[in-house]
Design a binder for these strands. Structure first.
Lengths: 225, 225
DNA sequence: GTAGCAGTCGTACTAAGTACGAAACCTGCG
DNA sequence: CGCAGGTTTCGTACTTAGTACGACTGCTAC
């Protein structure tokens, strides 16, 4: 019954010393797998093979943990290169942000409540601004462009997260129940769009992202001084 | 010490019978005042002058409560009139949505996790689609426009909620501490923008909304068949 | 080896969601 | 007027989660 000293871990994954990095990565994993709801100090400790209170040596509380996670997500976004072509760089960065936010969709909901950006977040924003300024955008237009592109990216990610389906063909699976719920033509335009467009083979809502982004970039180009 | 039967409420606001409407309104109030965090079944009951378990006769649980709140927020948005001029109607509706989401900014974070839209939400979306379709937009362009405008509105609201300030002049109050935190020129472009633009008298970040919206509407108009 | 410190954790308190079933209330009917 | 049956309200209590406090452990430098 007594454990020999050489075998350390009885039932938990990855033993050893904790580090802030391991804590954050484990938290990322949990949130990615099961959403923010599954991420508790206790589940986190368990994932790390430790007891809840051990976590508090690496984060001061759950709030700081969430702040750190948001910053970690921003860190994964490919920032634009301030010396490249603005249009291509902003475009690339926006696509990257969208992909990252799709993977960590729980992070979007966090953005609303966190008002103290971390270093990675600040750095990303700085690079976006630098890219625009160096490309000859006026301060005013830079501010416009920045607000516009970011809003679009976040908003798209937000919609994507709240869609009840995933991928090109899964649409039918959840859309049809909704179709029925619409009853006797309460939402005719939605029905029309669903049958004529959304449910057509080959349609993938995810493709909408590029259209809007290009429209925005076109508009900015036209308005550039 | 004994209360006379005629005086009913001892220490709580608004007595009488509960209704689902009163429950939802109280929940709205609490969330508006103190954010989602303050909204608990217990605080809600207390606001209503009732005990926690009484609430469960009007909502099946906290999740359903949150779903209902999101739908209530959508209900407050001014939907476009499908028979009006598409550009003006979409514009008006977008401004309304932005105003509503600013007032209930906690709702934005909820959007990410709720995947079953309520009737008001569906109705709003239906009206947007109808407005575009009746104005001669193709199904394809309608889908594009819908995703684009909604993304922009949600995303703008999301950014607005996470800004650490409010209103035209409050900017300085919170931006300057951040300026210092930037240390020795770690974020030069942000500093440049802050000093040359954001902190200039008369600048109001909220005004950015119109620029982006008009750019988007211009772009859609150009691409209309 | 041992003082000292960083890291780990046991215990326990608090807040919050909510299951269960009883009490209070109201209504229409005899 | 009184009572049966449904409706509403709530008392109690269990569960999960965050985290304060201080003790224990084990490594490192002397």
């Amino acid at each position: 019954m007594t454990e020999s000293p050489s075998s350390s871990a009885p039932a938990a994954p990855t033993r050893k010393r904790l580090t802030r990095e391991r804590v954050l990565n484990a938290a990322l994993d949990i949130a990615d797998r099961g959403g923010l709801q599954r991420l508790t100090i206790r589940s986190l400790a368990s994932e790390l093979g430790a007891r809840p209170m051990s976590v508090y040596h690496y984060v001061s509380g759950k709030d700081e943990l969430l702040d750190a996670l948001v910053d970690a997500v921003f860190d994964a976004i490919d920032s634009p290169d301030p010396d490249g072509d603005w249009r291509e760089e902003i475009r690339r960065s926006a696509h990257s942000a969208r992909a990252v936010l799709r993977k960590h969709s729980w992070a979007i909901g966090l953005l609303e409540s966190r008002t103290s950006p971390g270093p990675a977040t600040l750095r990303h924003h700085d690079r976006v601004l630098a890219c625009l300024l160096r490309s000859g955008f006026s301060a005013e237009l830079t501010a416009h462009a920045y607000a516009l592109v970011d809003s679009y990216v976040y908003g798209f990610a937000l919609q994507e997260a709240s869609l009840p389906f995933e991928g090109p063909d899964a649409v039918g699976g959840v859309a049809e129940p909704i179709l029925e719920r619409m009853g006797a033509g309460e939402y005719p335009a939605m029905v029309e769009m669903a049958t004529n467009h959304y449910l057509q083979p080959g349609y993938d809502w995810a493709d909408e992202f590029g259209f809007g982004l290009d429209l925005i970039l076109d508009g900015l180009e036209q308005r550039r001084g």
